[in-house]
Nucleic acid binder design. Sequence first.
DNA 1: GCACTGGATAATGTATACTTTAACGTATAC
DNA 2: GTATACGTTAAAGTATACATTATCCAGTGC
Lengths: 220, 220
Amino acid sequence: MGGPSHVDRALSALRQLIFSGELLPGSDHLETELATRLNVSRTPIREAALQLQAQGLVEVRPRRGIRVVPVSAQDMRDIYDILTELESLAAARAAQACYSKQDLATLATAIRDMDDALTTSDLPAWAKADDQFHHELVRLGRNARLGQIVSVMRDQVRRARAATLFMRPKPTQSNTAHRNVYQAIAERDPVRAHDVHHAHRRQACETLVELLETHRLHGL
Amino acid sequence: MGGPSHVDRALSALRQLIFSGELLPGSDHLETELATRLNVSRTPIREAALQLQAQGLVEVRPRRGIRVVPVSAQDMRDIYDILTELESLAAARAAQACYSKQDLATLATAIRDMDDALTTSDLPAWAKADDQFHHELVRLGRNARLGQIVSVMRDQVRRARAATLFMRPKPTQSNTAHRNVYQAIAERDPVRAHDVHHAHRRQACETLVELLETHRLHGL
DNA sequence: GCACTGGATAATGTATACTTTAACGTATAC
DNA sequence: GTATACGTTAAAGTATACATTATCCAGTGC
């Protein structure tokens, strides 16, 4: 069976390099350089770069290199605007879908994991569980295209959150909000699910952008 | 100066072939076939196909060919859900942006063109002006990422609308709705701009999906 | 008749060679 | 000293050659 192709590996590797910060935001990288680095020819690099460009992670600029796009505070606002609307829509749709408690088990698990992480002050674990919750929420909304868009937006947010995770107050509110969204979905109340989640994301955006701006974290 | 590359031309050509229906939804096309057809090598075809895949217009399936993705009625609902939320958000943001009447001139022009097209019953012209209005609206919302997403979604809608344009009743309501959105933006009333546009798109979705389903137009 | 094996085939995945061209530096004219 | 023209160079764009491998079909065994 065909294992992952060189393009696939280049994609993962480049994502890894970007998220880990080894490829700094704003930095340019020639195709040849990356090809050498990943031990492949230019072809898979070019194809991977094209896909990353479509995801907004890099920008290919002829003769200047493949650029890791920096994300400003304003960009983050734009991204959150999209994320907020689409996730809230997913929440509403999930509430309309008449899920049983069993269907919502994964959501409940994510919430529990967040609580656990909070009591042990394990912020990375909290972030992971938080991602899990949002991912599940969108999945329950049953709109594959929406899921894809949201996941691209969430990648960007993740980059910024990594830089600010340890500056934040304990995210107690988030857990409460998630619990309320879960309740609304379980009770099949789309409007409440939508509104609660919307307010939650809006708040999260404010918190994040404020941190970015006060700490002068531009071009993440 | 560097004219458009082969990749650029392949992209336009393939889009043209898809939108014109020469490449039927659901049909598969080998890289070599398309390369011969467009008089280029496989390389630009592969790169173009990757970008079209990112836009959801084709699906590249190893050894089975590049497939023009068919769009079902349910797909169209999903697409409209996204479009509705994001365009409405753009409308709200546009209303918050304190634009002068001059800034809104292009919107007004689009509305006038729609009216003209309606009185002469020139439906293609109406569709074009309609696109223009929505495009302008989103531009005024000042969120580049949102603009990109919306434009991808609108491509899909365009495919379906082309098939149903002449089945519809005269789109008088649309013109009224657009006028109201324009008004709300001019009066800097984000909530009304949002809600009016939201209702408008929702209605459009219902109309379109109903046509698709009654006429059994699956896999457009 | 059916399932399985194995090889032929053809399409993709990848590397590489080649072409084109933008960017940079140098030299020259003024 | 500045600006323009020109040549060099290196990077991307493209074609192509090659390697890999899924698919199909014929043949075999049962």
